[in-house]
């Protein structure tokens, strides 16, 4: 029994960097994200008997974190949502966490997505889960995850084009139009 618990602890610690990355991507405010990770660790520890050893502990932990995130959101109500970008503004306090200014712009765009779309694109696009695994974590249909990821991509594309017209988008398109017309 003690031996099993040691294995569980070791696997949990090994998953912590990924769990934190998921929480910070999901929430934006690093302090709040770490509070959520702490709550997740306590929940996971309390229900470790329900984890089947040998199965995917990462998916199991992500599911707990995700459910905890939504239950806290429901408890606190809508006002904690970062609709005014208050938490995002605090990013300047943690510059190391997001590296370049470029990534800070991306972070802001990500925070503007609806929660379900943001979580879907993170799980599939960054955490390395398949659509099927992501659907299981979010307890929804695979098709729902696919459409959320697709809508998230489209929205991010729109948001980033508005913020960074010089980088890509209108420029590359106008180049194409010009070369087509005058070739």
């Amino acid at each position: 029994m003690v031996h099993q618990s040691t294995d569980f602890k070791r696997d949990l610690i090994a998953s912590l960097p990924k769990l934190r990355a998921f929480a910070v991507s999901l929430i934006g405010n690093p302090d709040r994200a770490d509070d959520l990770v702490q709550d997740t660790i306590m929940k996971a520890w309390a229900k470790q008997d329900s984890f089947a050893p040998g199965t995917n502990i990462k998916a199991w932990l992500f599911t707990i974190l995700r459910n905890e995130f939504y239950s806290q959101m429901r408890k606190r109500g809508r006002e904690v949502q970062d609709s005014d970008g208050i938490f995002t503004e605090q990013l300047s306090v943690h510059p190391a966490q997001y590296g370049s200014l470029d990534l800070q712009d991306f972070r802001k765009a990500l925070d503007k997505l609806p929660d379900d779309q943001r979580e879907a694109i993170i799980l599939v696009g960054a955490s390395g889960f398949s659509y099927e695994e992501a659907a299981e974590i979010c307890s929804c249909a695979v098709g729902t995850i696919k459409s959320r990821v697709s809508r998230a991509r489209t929205r991010l594309q729109e948001l980033l084009e508005i913020q960074g017209e010089v980088d890509y988008g209108p420029d590359s398109i106008s180049t194409q139009v010009t070369s087509n017309k005058f070739a």
């Binding site: 990924k18 934190r20 966490q97 990534l103 696009g125 980033l160």
Partner: peptide
């Protein structure tokens, strides 16, 4: 654009991980 979004998303994620 999708590639660019994917790269930035993974870069953000990796920076925390």
């Amino acid at each position: 654009a999708e590639t660019e979004i994917g790269l930035k998303l993974r870069a953000l994620y990796a920076s925390v991980q």
